[in-house]
């Protein structure tokens, strides 16, 4: 009697833990062929943003320029996403000022 209830309890807890654990399916690790490319991570988008800043920002906006330069440099050296991040911040700064 005792042994049977023990087995039941342990089995239940294992099942619950398995249910609780995240599985690969749910996290969406699909094969690369299925994945859609996000275009705003590209060097091209980097340049688009640079051009936008150039056209909108007067030369006197030193902070914006600084961020733009940093972003452009990061993009050119291959760090596209950090670069885009800088450029977006520059644009945000530009809007708020």
């Amino acid at each position: 009697m005792m042994v049977r209830s023990l087995i039941f309890v342990s089995a239940t807890s294992v099942v619950l833990l398995c249910a609780a654990a995240p599985d690969a399916e749910q996290l969406g690790w699909h094969p690369a062929s299925d994945a859609v490319v996000v275009t705003t991570d590209s060097l091209a988008y980097c340049h688009t943003l640079e051009r936008t800043i150039e056209t909108r920002a007067p030369a006197s906006f030193q902070n914006v320029r600084l961020l733009e330069t940093q972003g452009a440099r990061l993009c050119d050296s291959g760090h596209v996403r950090p670069g885009i991040d800088r450029l977006r911040r520059a644009l945000q700064l530009l809007r708020h000022s």
Binding site: W29, D34, V37, D41
Partner: peptide, 23 residues
């Protein structure tokens, strides 16, 4: 900023979880 309409995203009443490729 998506290159194309992902396959299997057809219905407008559900949220899809899809893989994307970022850089």
């Amino acid at each position: 900023n998506l290159v194309s309409w992902p396959r299997n995203v057809t219905r407008t009443d559900v949220n899809y979880e899809r893989a994307i490729l970022r850089d």
